[in-house]
């Protein structure tokens, strides 16, 4: 949709139009979790975040009319993050190893709920590490 305006820069009206689309998408991403289907929430939350980010980059940052090298540079850094994730995730996302065991106690749903109730009913907070007073 930008091709016709490419040589004149964007008009204010065009920006406002993009803005309304962005707000509509924000609305969808807030309503999404209310439906309660997990995969749908993932799409409404992160799928829409990607589209929103792309729209801001393309139309507000004007990447759509910028020299291609800017796209390539930014895309390359994103690719690099993917490399980072792929290399690190197998280790960091591993809950146990052969020669060590984790002493970390992960809260269960019940424990968390009890703590949440305590935090939101009494004035006293429910910190379980004892160093929350910092």
């Amino acid at each position: 949709m930008s091709n016709s305006e490419e040589h004149h820069g964007h008009s204010a009206k065009h920006y406002v139009k993009i803005y309304w689309i962005l707000l509509a998408m924000l609305g969808v991403s807030i309503v999404g979790p209310e439906i309660g289907i997990k995969w749908l929430t993932l799409i409404t939350a992160f799928g829409i975040a990607l589209v929103k980010a792309w729209m801001v980059c393309a139309y507000f940052m004007h990447l759509n009319i910028e020299k291609k090298i800017a796209w390539y540079t930014l895309a390359a850094t994103l690719l690099l993050l993917l490399v980072f994730f792929t290399g690190v995730a197998p280790d960091v996302m591993k809950p146990e190893g052969q020669n060590w065991k984790s002493l970390y106690h992960e809260q269960t749903r019940e424990e968390w709920d009890a703590e949440y109730d305590a935090a939101h009913h009494g004035d006293d907070h429910g910190d379980d590490h004892g160093d929350g007073g910092h």
Binding site: F84, V88, D91, V92, S102, H129, D131, H134
Partner: peptide, 24 residues
């Protein structure tokens, strides 16, 4: 300085994460 547990396995962190960040 503050006592968070990003790299402390007992608090839910991971010391290997630093090694990856550092060598990356």
């Amino acid at each position: 300085t503050l006592g968070t547990s990003f790299y402390n396995p007992a608090g839910g962190g991971d010391p290997l994460l630093w090694q990856h960040l550092f060598w990356f």
